[in-house]
Design a protein around this nucleic acid. Structure first.
Lengths: 150, 150
DNA sequence: CACGCCTTTGCAATAAAATTGCACAGATCT
DNA sequence: AGATCTGTGCAATTTTATTGCAAAGGCGTG
């Protein structure tokens, strides 16, 4: 994991659709040598996967919201049960167990408010062990970064 | 944007490293026809970009935290100024303006607590117009999805 | 329904890229 | 110094992407 590997990882986090030949030139290696590095980074698991990122405004699910959840009963199994339900929801894009007053934070991507309504119904009904929750609608996304710069 | 386009988008959000020939077979098209669809989806901007996703546990910045921020002065320019500062921080991976008691929510990716300390110093010092903030350390990541399933 | 128009498709040829074997250079350890 | 291991570039080979073209399907209009 030297300077060139880092350079490659940063390049590929920005744009993984470039050809190997192209990237090889940028990092100053021959195509074959560059390819072998990328393969090594993939096999080692440092590069987890290569994916397409859609433009959310051109796709569905334009509305984003954050929800903080306080559970009634804390403890491993209760936490696990709630997370399992939340994670199964398509509208839930991120789900975290956190420290502090709040137990769980969810990030939602919604088509419309009907979907929000239905989701709340499923997640926050009596039996699901939720004491209370706070919804924050996202007004503006100032940054949303999947990359980890090295 | 028909059934096959949606299928392609879902495929590529899962794994964009597959060859065109491979994907063509899966969606039941000839390679050339499939390629033209993908190119169209790219040119139209529905596919924003193709990127490598790193395994965070194998990279740096293992510690994640969420911060909710309440500003002293609300209003467009103050909000904008704070977001600008926050967004410039490498450790800030997501930044949102939200409705409710809280004004801003930040997602952090940290190397260690020293970095957290230094970041708070920069973001939450007097002149930056922050009334108060709450930190939630992320204990467990149950879901973290970049995809928008169609 | 017939017609023209537009889009999408598959095939085949071509161009470009990825992949592999191989020999060599540099670093490290003994 | 010698042995070993890793990484490199070159060249040959295989695989993939790309493009022209003719045909098929869909759609609205007369």
């Amino acid at each position: 994991m030297d300077r060139i590997d880092r350079k490659l990882l940063n390049l590929m986090q920005r744009d993984a659709s470039r050809t190997n030949v192209d990237m090889a030139e940028e990092v100053g290696l021959s195509p074959s040598s560059c390819l072998r590095r990328v393969q090594r980074l993939r096999n080692s698991g440092i590069i987890d996967r290569i994916v397409a990122i859609l433009n959310p405004t051109k796709a569905e699910r334009r509305i984003k919201a954050l929800i903080t959840v306080e559970l009634k009963l804390h403890g491993e199994q209760h936490m696990r049960r709630f997370l399992k339900i939340a994670v199964a929801e398509e509208a839930v894009s991120q789900a975290y167990a956190v420290t502090g007053e709040t137990d769980v934070v969810l990030m939602l991507r919604l088509r419309d408010m009907e979907e929000f309504d239905a989701l709340c119904e499923r997640l926050f009904r009596d039996q699901t062990n939720v004491a209370r929750f706070f919804t924050m609608m996202i007004i503006r996304t100032a940054k949303e970064e999947t990359a980890i710069w090295l």
